[in-house]
């Protein structure tokens, strides 16, 4: 099945390349493999170095986002006052895509020494925070009645209900929130890097290759790297779900 899909994609690619500027798959593959270890002359960095830079920003920002979103999601689902305080805020900010924050972020953080780096981390933070918060909040808030009925039958106290029913149930929300949040964060960093000069990063690399001109194979190679990393991150998180939740 997968093999058939891959063959089809490559054939389609060749077909489209015949009529457009899109480089042929073998050209892209060649460029990709060369750039993996050999520095590209304009920026003087390998594709792996660019990928590492982007990945580092995403992981830092996502880690901060999750550290806040997970506890906040659980607590605001359980505490009425906090819920009334936090949910309107979230509802107001959530529809604004992280990419829309890019210009404002660069302005706000301009006085700081590391403007670009901090702005980019902020943008990824925005991207990763909301999906994670919402997922955790929803799961913590909607514990199925059937489980709560067990608690009532056995006359479990609040603390036990929280520890043995609410928290394990919201773990599902944490797991999918982290996965979706990281995905959105990864898309956000690429966009954020395209706007400002950051010296390295996959988004920056693609943009510079575009500006230099005539480097279409490099652009597609960079895109391929973005796709591969996004896919692998998602796969790792999917696999680790079974480790975190062995009962599923």
């Amino acid at each position: 099945m997968r093999l058939k899909g891959a063959i089809f994609l490559i054939l389609l690619w060749y077909f489209v390349s015949a009529f457009t500027e899109l480089p042929h798959p073998h050209e892209v593959a060649e460029t990709f493999l060369i750039l993996l270890l050999k520095p590209e002359p304009v920026l003087g960095k390998t594709l792996i170095q660019h990928a590492y830079a982007s990945l580092f920003r995403v992981l830092t920002a996502s880690l901060i986002a999750f550290t806040i979103a997970i506890p906040l999601g659980i607590v605001s689902a359980l505490n009425r006052t906090l819920m009334e305080l936090v949910t309107p805020l979230v509802e107001a900010l959530r529809p604004i895509p992280p990419l829309a924050w890019i210009p404002l972020a660069y302005i706000i953080f301009a006085p700081l020494p590391n403007t670009v780096q901090i702005s980019q981390i902020f943008i990824v933070f925005v991207g990763a925070f909301f999906p994670c918060f919402i997922s955790v909040f929803d799961y913590s808030r909607n514990v199925p009645e059937e489980f709560l009925e067990i608690a009532r039958v056995f006359r479990a106290r609040e603390k036990l209900i929280l520890r043995d029913i609410v928290l394990p149930h919201s773990l599902q929300g944490v797991v999918s929130g982290v996965r979706i949040g990281l995905g959105v964060g990864w898309m956000s960093i690429i966009a954020a890097e395209m706007i400002a000069t950051s010296g390295e990063g996959l988004g920056y690399f693609i943009m510079v290759m575009y500006k230099v001109g005539g480097r279409t194979a490099e652009i597609v190679a960079g895109m391929a790297m973005i796709g591969i990393i996004g896919y692998v991150m998602n796969l790792i998180l999917l696999k680790s779900e079974k480790l975190v939740m062995p009962w599923r």
């Binding site: 056995f154 479990a156 036990l160 149930h169 773990l171 939740m245 009962w247």
Partner: peptide, 15 residues
């Protein structure tokens, strides 16, 4: 679902 056989039975006792 997140508790083993042992954990499920223990839950009633913990309550």
């Amino acid at each position: 679902p997140w508790k083993t056989v042992y954990g499920n039975i223990l839950f009633a006792l913990k309550a």
